[in-house]
Amino acid sequence: MADRALLLDLGGTVFLSGVELLGSLGAAHPAAAAVAARRGPLGTEPDPLWDTMIAEEITERDYWRRRSEEVGAALGRPGWPLQEFMHLLWGLSDDMVRPSAAAIVADARAAGIAVGALTNDLRAFHGDGAMSSHPLLSQLDVLVDGSDTGVLKPDPRAYAIAVERIGHPAEEIVFVDDMPWNIVPAKAAGMIALELDLSDPSEVFDRARAELGLAPAP
């Protein structure tokens, strides 16, 4: 279905989620183990801050800012900049890209399907770090970063910008994101919006492949 396009969130969708990477933080930095145990739906301890974010009482940026402060305090780094925390967190992984995400990007491009990303925080969270310069980003036809546009999901204008830049009507765009509040406005815009489940992240890419007319992953 080359008349369709693929639009992906980055952090948590293409790249591993911060809550997944927090699972490695406690082992690497035992002083932060108690903080790392509170990591959304994947933690061994309740995470009230995550629940507050899911209830849309705070933003995703607020969540990670608080986590950065907690980890910084545990490691004896008060006032730790958020980007330094993110660089530490993503540095815990040898390959920060989900294999199923890399595969669908490659297969979509081979099939002549436009591939773009709609993300809120690439530059704000990662600056010039490894995620911002990852080779996979060079495979995208379009990269819309709310850090640059100043318009963040779930604002409907963010989706309108992505639609304009990817050059396909909303109803032809298969959009994948890991946050429920980003899925709702994508559907309202007319996109085929699919939510990634952090407990089974590969499953959503199977559904996206079906929507795009791509063969199932091996």
Rank of each mutant, 00 (worst) to 15 (best):
R123M: 01
L136N: 05
S138I: 14
G146V: 09
N182A: 05
D155M: 05
G146H: 09
R123C: 00
G116M: 12
K153Y: 02
V151M: 11
R165S: 08
E172A: 15
L137M: 14
E171G: 07
P156N: 07
A160S: 09
D178R: 03
M179G: 05
G150Q: 15
P169N: 06
H126T: 00
F175S: 00
E171D: 14
T119H: 14
V151F: 11
S138Q: 15
V176W: 00
N182V: 03
D178Y: 02
G129W: 09
E171I: 04
A130C: 00
M131F: 00
G116D: 13
S138Y: 13
G146K: 12
V163W: 01
V174M: 07
P154M: 06
N120D: 04
P135W: 09
E171T: 10
S132F: 02
V176D: 01
V176Y: 00
H126P: 00
V174P: 08
T119M: 06
S132T: 09
N182D: 04
L122K: 03
I166R: 04
A117E: 03
R157K: 13
Y159M: 04
L140G: 11
A124E: 01
S138A: 15
R165Y: 06
E164H: 10
H126W: 01
A186S: 02
S133F: 12
L140M: 15
E164S: 14
A160I: 02
F175H: 06
G112A: 13
V163Q: 07
V163Y: 02
D141E: 07
A124M: 02
G150A: 14
V176S: 00
R123N: 00
V115W: 10
H134K: 05
I161T: 09
